[in-house]
Structures are given as structure tokens and as C-alpha cells.
Amino acid sequence: MRAGIAMQLRRLVRTPSLLLGILLLVPVAMAVGVPGWIAPHDPELRGPALQQIDGRWAAPPYPPSREYPLGSDLRARDLLSRIVYGARVTLLLALVAAAIRILIGAILGWAAATFRGAVERWIVIAADISATLPSLLFAFLLIATIGPHRGLPVFLIGLGFTGWAAWTQLIYSGIRRIQAEPYMEAAEAIGTTRRSRLRYYLLPNLLPAVLPVIVQEIAAVLLLLAELGFLGIYLGSSSPLRLSDLLGGEQPQLPIPEWGGMLAGTRLEIFRWSWLPIVPAGAFFMTILGLYLLADGLRQQLDKAKS
């Protein structure tokens, strides 16, 4: 048992990207699981309306200090605490949207590989067309038109109904590749049922290749969420998207902290209060980087295991 754990640890250390990815994702996982442990303040707690900084009285947002490690927002709320408490909503949204993408793509990929002929042709054409649609434009158009204030379902549609094409292509080509393997032909020849072939041959050979891509997909959804947030589209919005939301100058009042919403309206703040866009963007970047490194490390481990 101990030898097994030691071997796993040795493997982990020998794959720097996996180790680094895990190290980056540990604080994120803690923020999702136990935000109260790491957040210094209540995310809704407002600080004083005026504060002395370098001998001068100033109004919020306050720059990073001992009181506010990553600065405060315009309502004098601690940004670090809001980032920590916002991790759960943001990552859950990304996770569910990624699951929808994967589900749609996998079902279509499986259908294309299983039912040949017209079904295969049309699915492949649909996936090819969908793959050429820029995800950001598609999601922005869909969510802005329906209205971000309508909540979670609109976001799941906007984020989940784009980006599935890559999964269709991956699953389709994966199944076709495995189906052409001699062991699949042998299994068919000895009369194995379709369910058994799926369970004992297809899935075990397909899943290892797919696992890193699942992690990458979550990162891709997070990237899209960040860009949408910056453009004023975020979960928890209370009104339809207006031009003023897009142009900035007004920070949204978020009922629940969410990283995308914290980025909304911060385009021009970079010169005045740089921490307002940098902190949520940094949280997104750290998580995306962690997920990419994790995916890369997993891929390396699986390649090693295969060879």
C-alpha cells in the first residue's frame, strides 16, 4: 500500500506539469469546498466609507493593503473574500456547461460512429459547421438576446450549446479507430453482445484519451465565462444587457459573488483601480492554467502508462 503511494508520488514529481497543476488547483478546490477557512472576511461585509491611505483620506475602492490583501471593490468589500466565495458558483457553472457540451458532443459522435450513412454524414457536417462558429460570439449573441437576467438556464444554453463539435469529432474518430482494431473484430466474431463490447472494449480504450480533454473543456468554458463577464454578461445579472453595461463605468451589484460579474464594467478601470480587473482575471487565469497543466500532466501519465 505504502509502496504504491510512494510510486504514485514519484510519478507525480516526475511530471512537473501535473504537480504544478495540482498545486495551482488546491487553493481553488479549497475555495470551492471550504471558503470560510480561507476568506479573511464575509464577502458582503462593507468596510468604512473613508479610509486613510498614505496619510490621505480616500474613498473605496481601496488598494491592496493588510486589511484588504487584494484590494476592495467600490463598496469597500474585500476582493479576496469575494473571489474565494465566488469560486463555487463560477466553477460549478463551468462544470455543468462543460458537462452539457461533452454530453451533446459524445451522443452525436457515438451516433455518427454507430449509425452510418445519412446520419453519419449529417452529424459530421453539423459538427464541421459548428466548429467554425466562434464560441464567444455565439454565446454572447444567444445570452444577450435572451437576456442574462433570466438566470442559469440561459447561461447553460449559451455556454453548453457551443464547443460540442470538438467532442463529436473526438468521440466519432475515437470509436471508429477502436472499431477497426483486431480485438474488436475478434470480440464481434465470438458473438459478444454490443453492450459487452461497449463495456469491456470500447469504453476502457476510449476513456483514457478523453480524460485530459474533459479537464481542458472545463478550462475552455472558464475562459469563455471570463470573456463574457468582461463584456457585461454574468450570472446574477438583474437586468437585460444594456450598452452602458458593455461600455463600463458602472460596477454591477452582485447578489452572489461570481468571477465573471466581478470583471463586468472594469475595462477602463485598469488605469485608475487596476486591481478591480486584475484580481478576478488573475483568479480565472490561475484556474485555467492549473486545469491546462493538469490535463497536460494526465496526458503524459497516460502516454507513459500506454507505452
Binding site: A226, E227, L263, R267, A281, F284, F285, I288
Partner: peptide
């Protein structure tokens, strides 16, 4: 280059 949010 691929994983950095464009706006950032």
C-alpha cells in the same frame, strides 16, 4: 498564448 483570456 492559448490559455490566456484575450481581454487580459
Amino acid at each position: 498564448g492559448i490559455m490566456t483570456p484575450t481581454f487580459m
